[in-house]
Design a binder for these strands. Sequence first.
DNA 1: ATGAAAGCGCTAACAA
DNA 2: TTGTTAGCGCTTTCAT
Lengths: 345, 345
Amino acid sequence: MPSQPHKASRLKRVTLADIAARLGVTKVTVSRALNQPEKVSAAMRERVTECARELGYMPNRQAGSLASGHSRLIALLIPSLSNAVFSELHRGLEAPLAAAGYQLLIGHTGYSMQEEERLIETWLSFGIDGLVLCGSRHSPRTREMIARSGCAVVECMEKRETPLDMAVGLDQHAAGRAMTEAMIALGHRHIGFLGARMDRRVEQRLGGWRAAMEAAGLSQQALLTTDAPSSVRMGGELLDEMLTRWPETQAVFCCNDDLAAGGLFECQRRGLSVPDQLALAGFNGLEMTRGTWPPLASVVTPRREIGERAAALLLARLSGDLDATPHGLWEDLGFSLQTGGSLSS
Amino acid sequence: MPSQPHKASRLKRVTLADIAARLGVTKVTVSRALNQPEKVSAAMRERVTECARELGYMPNRQAGSLASGHSRLIALLIPSLSNAVFSELHRGLEAPLAAAGYQLLIGHTGYSMQEEERLIETWLSFGIDGLVLCGSRHSPRTREMIARSGCAVVECMEKRETPLDMAVGLDQHAAGRAMTEAMIALGHRHIGFLGARMDRRVEQRLGGWRAAMEAAGLSQQALLTTDAPSSVRMGGELLDEMLTRWPETQAVFCCNDDLAAGGLFECQRRGLSVPDQLALAGFNGLEMTRGTWPPLASVVTPRREIGERAAALLLARLSGDLDATPHGLWEDLGFSLQTGGSLSS
DNA sequence: ATGAAAGCGCTAACAA
DNA sequence: TTGTTAGCGCTTTCAT
């Protein structure tokens, strides 16, 4: 590694040894006073904390982790920073993990398995104790590294019959099917599907739409997908194309709420009334769906609860409650439908 | 620290020593073959990489960092995970830092100075080499820890006359003023301001609105703010209240695009035509503003460029180009106005 | 309640 | 090109 002139200019680091020397005790005592205060006399505790404060001591956790073999670090890998779904997953994880003394790291994969692999390699080499992943698609090397490391893992969001270790989420296929069935039940026959950023979860939702349409004997013709990132604007463009190609369309199921919001704006642009002339539904039930006009119908997914449950599983695993949380565990947290609004008045 | 039964169950870690023993050389040689391949014979390089692969070797970066004194880790602290502004800042940082061999850590402060302090303490104790912060408000302890550590720092987004080290962003006050002046130039007299999540940047934008209104001799009465998080829904609620209390309002400047989008939906709910009956503007110029109908007027901020510039400054500092990047440096990357659409047809 | 010794896995500086 | 010697700062035993 190259030299680092900048750091060279800093003050010398204060270490346990400095405190120990100043107090005429050994490093062990100082370490205990700071990390296991009950194992040290009240007087000593007092003197050590006072001196640490005075000198501006900051522990070196690299050294600590190296010596102890664990870091109290848990990494969360999310596909997208701007997708509110993952920020709510994060919210669910953060509090319980922090309460148990774990620090949550956030990594950004950009929906790339390769980037996921790179990040996991980095995190593992920094000694993380646990890992939270989104989805169930991982490279072979990712699987191998995780297995070797013995790191606790939870896979989130989608159904996972054979998890790497533990998994918690919902059945995206069933959710897609349920919403489509609701649309059919409202009397719609020409129901289109709009999908962007076609990752596994979106494909599962699409599968649900297909299953429902097929079961009802309806045409699966009005289908438009793109691998490009999902966005409000993309929703408008896709809906425009759909209405141009299949003008008979009565209802559109969008693979997420951003797309559906864009669809809502496109309807305004065209002067189409929602839901009277066109019914619209999204997926995830983000906060936004209750701020649009009309309110957006959507499949509400328990993102935050998934995070909370994932945290609980991780903590159980890390604390050694092995029997209570069997490997291969899969928990289904379900979903619910938010109808009305953009679907029916 | 508590015991860790889970990790105990894993395979023994493969270390440099294992490879060295197997090859009948010393650890140093193996370390060199892996990290400074040019310092070792081609044959040796070959044997080492092969053996490392075979044994599934994964370096321990805690040990490496501890020994070398640097980690090649840079932390980015963002106030909100779901705000697209910060995800684009991240995007700007990521590529250049990765290209230079640095790993970017993401931390989430939730707009809390205290959480920022806690995170910085954690990251510093894990030996980060650089730090990217949003904004210029930091607790005294945060400043002190950063100073002691000698860690390179860039403060992003807002104007900063006296940075901790380096800063890059834009003048939020001037941006707020410019948009307000544009609204005035369009002939509007009753211009309201809507603000949520009143952090420093939003306060500066509000200050810009005030300055422009005052300069034009207009009333600053139509002002509604809340400390609650910003959201589409909140935008609708605030606009509803504003139009109820000040029915004469002709134009509304929202402190960000989410709020403005909510305002757009509220106008639909009320059957108000935008911009004919009410003009609307947001702030940031997110992708979304080009997906609404009508397209949303907004102040376009160079978030991505700020990230790229921050990365460049950090790398310059870390590589020792001290003279080229003076401490106390502040770079203004400006802004631009996106008008038309929701502001005027 | 405190200490002594040993070592976590790696890299830096210097030798050969 | 490769090896030797010393740590980095902390936490573990195991003693006392």
